[in-house]
């Protein structure tokens, strides 16, 4: 299955190990990732959007126009990019006047967007188009006995009507994907709360992140599974800062789903940058 690849800035620049994990696991899943030239920031659904929503929509439409020109749908691997591009498509498809207004701007650089691009996160493509059986079929080293507490994050699932991925209150897609590669998903109380990263207030991000960490600690997980680079940041370096401040000694390694898949496919931890995380999983590094 051929899809236009939208890795996103944060993954490309700050957490390239996530991009490596996706690029290295995709071939065995029959996903062909096409790199289109000229793709810019999605742009980010928090700060950029909060300054000027029409500018945000216009830059998103430019990216969508590039995929439309190539005749491909987008596959994303960052929850933030998924939210921006899916919401932008929704707004542009829903409102012809708004699309006209955005296209007037796009014409200045010789582009136009006509609503022909769908944006889906890779996990949605795997579930709906390829099937989790394909995940299982690609596994050569099942992660048997590995207890993973899931942190969903917000933008993969919400807003529900636009994202159409899973029930945001009772999601199962991440747990299903973990079972498909032999790992054991572990339920915990704060599975679907926000990590707090986007709050512009000094205490809230810390309180929310800490709430998730306490929940995971109580559930006695080996590690936490994440799907969003922003959440990863909160729980990798963020966890070190919080744990030090509160003298908690927490070291719950956050791991991106596709890094786990890579290990299950027989790749080494270093090939997907697991040795570069601030909080390392000894158990995974010695696989």
């Amino acid at each position: 299955m051929k899809l236009a690849f939208f890795p996103g800035c944060m993954i490309q620049v700050r957490f390239p190990q996530m991009e490596a994990a996706v690029r290295k696991t995709a071939p065995a899943l029959d996903v062909e990732l096409i790199d289109l030239p000229g793709l810019g920031c999605c742009p980010d659904p928090v700060f950029f959007k909060s300054l000027h929503k029409l500018d945000w929509l216009t830059l998103a439409a430019r990216n969508l126009a590039i995929a439309e020109q190539a005749g491909l749908d987008f596959v994303t691997i960052c929850s933030g990019c998924t939210e921006t591009l899916a919401e932008a498509s929704h707004l542009l498809n829903d409102d012809a006047d708004l699309r006209g207004q955005v296209n007037e701007r796009l014409h200045k650089i010789g582009m136009e967007y006509n609503g022909g691009v769908a944006t889906r996160h890779l996990i949605t493509v795997l579930r709906d188009n390829l099937g989790f059986e394909r995940l299982t079929a690609s596994v050569t080293r099942p992660l048997t006995g590995l207890r993973v507490g899931v942190h969903y994050g917000c933008h993969l699932l919400k807003p529900r009507k636009i994202m159409q991925v899973d029930d945001p209150d009772h999601p199962t897609v991440f747990e299903d994907m973990l079972r498909a590669i032999g790992a054991e998903p572990v339920d915990h109380v704060e599975r679907v709360i926000c990590c707090g990263k986007s709050c512009r207030d000094c205490n809230l991000p810390e309180e929310m992140t800490l709430t998730v960490l306490r929940s995971l600690k109580t559930a006695e997980v080996d590690m936490m599974g994440v799907i969003c680079p922003s959440c990863f940041d909160s729980f990798d370096i963020g966890q070190i800062k919080i744990s030090r401040k509160h003298k908690l000694g927490y070291t719950i390694p956050p791991v991106y789903y596709f890094q786990l898949l890579a290990l299950a496919q027989g790749l080494t931890p270093a090939e997907v940058g697991l040795d570069k995380h601030k909080i390392k999983s000894e158990r995974l590094l010695t696989l």
Binding site: P168, C194, S198, C199, R200
Partner: peptide, 12 residues
Amino acid sequence: VWMCSNCFTCFD
């Protein structure tokens, strides 16, 4: 307003 977590729960 800048304290908003941007989580979209209220949207839903």
